[in-house]
Design a protein around this nucleic acid. Structure first.
Lengths: 193, 193
DNA sequence: TCCATTTCTTGTCATTTGGTAAGTGCAAGC
DNA sequence: GCTTGCACTTACCAAATGACAAGAAATGGA
């Protein structure tokens, strides 16, 4: 993804002039993160919001028993950060790890605040982005409320097959809210169909 | 809750001068909604964001099989709206119903947009509010991923006991992601302890 | 008050999922 | 080549939850 693609992405989220999109894109910097390294570690204040150009990330937190729980996977074109930490300037509870070599575009909190001040379209864009994140989470919440683990797995297979190829089973299991044993069984049944 | 309390609530979310908080509070209007009536019905664009002064609301959607699923309960001091519909100007998927007689303060989308334009503190407030909603949802997601239905029920009992007194069991059940039969049994075990 | 409806409980049984542990396959490093 | 660790599978049994149905309790009109 070149900077042109970044500009295109902005325009897809919120209609705006090419010049505006270009102005916003200027604030973003590029970074490579090798496989298994971290884009964010818990405890520090999340200071960057990333757009993934290439690669897959996993966000996770440690629960009260010290087990890690996958909160989200992110792939190409998606945003990743600890939203709460980033916007509230509080220590992050999430860890964001690269499951594959990653190339991302990111903006720092200060750069974002400054740009928000002068570019109304960027403010709108930022707000829409948070709302979209909320929508994604809400959709997932619904799938937890009303679907079986197998249905949730099926959705993942059809919606984000690339995750399955790069994330170990145990990470996918905590993402779906089940044990790795159960997921192994579900997967076995699944291939039969 | 008088308008003074509304002002106080704004200042709690985001530190700002009393004058600013007053200016923001001016944009909010009061409304009574009798028990069982709706603050929002699916299909229409959510045009109001409510702060509950008194009463309890339930938000729910219909799933693909026509069953209603409770997405959230809101009580005193909480915000309620269909965030996605409100900010994206799309038809609402959620219904918001008053479980008890409700008194709310609300602002319309147009009034909010206009105020956002001229009052930076209100913009910040609005953003923080969305982020907080996201945080609430994320917390609930985690409880779905790693806790049993009984643990989730227990949290509800300790955190929001007033909901239990006004919401029928079946609504609470879909909120917890279980059947009403299971919840009845869980509750039976629960009182023993 | 009485009736009709809804809400809630309970019983029975099936299904799903968890907990534990053993075993297999694979890859990295010595 | 061999060991070691990790990822995954499989088997066994227990616990949690669902599906369905019957009945009790509460509620809300007429």
């Amino acid at each position: 993804m070149s900077k042109d693609n970044l500009i295109q992405l902005f325009q897809n989220v919120l209609p705006m002039s090419h010049a505006r999109a270009e102005q916003i894109a200027e604030k973003f910097k590029r970074r490579k993160t090798p496989r298994n390294e971290y884009l964010l570690k818990e405890g520090s204040v999340c200071n960057e919001s990333h757009i993934i150009e290439e690669g897959i990330t996993r966000s996770y937190i440690y629960d009260h028993e010290g087990m890690d729980v996958t909160t989200t996977f992110c792939t190409k074109q998606m945003f990743t950060s600890d939203l709460l930490s980033f916007f509230k300037r509080t220590p992050a509870k999430e860890n964001i790890q690269a499951l594959t070599d990653c190339q991302t575009w990111y903006i720092t909190y200060d750069d974002m605040q400054e740009s928000f001040h002068g570019i109304p379209e960027f403010r709108e864009f930022g707000r829409l982005n948070i709302i979209n994140q909320y929508g994604i989470l809400q959709q997932r919440m619904l799938s937890m409320l009303q679907q079986t683990a197998e249905q949730r797995y099926s959705e993942l297979v059809h919606g984000n097959p690339e995750i399955l190829q790069h994330a170990p089973l145990k990470y996918i299991a905590t993402y779906l809210g089940i044990t790795d044993t159960s997921l192994s069984r579900i997967r076995k049944e699944f291939v039969k169909k």
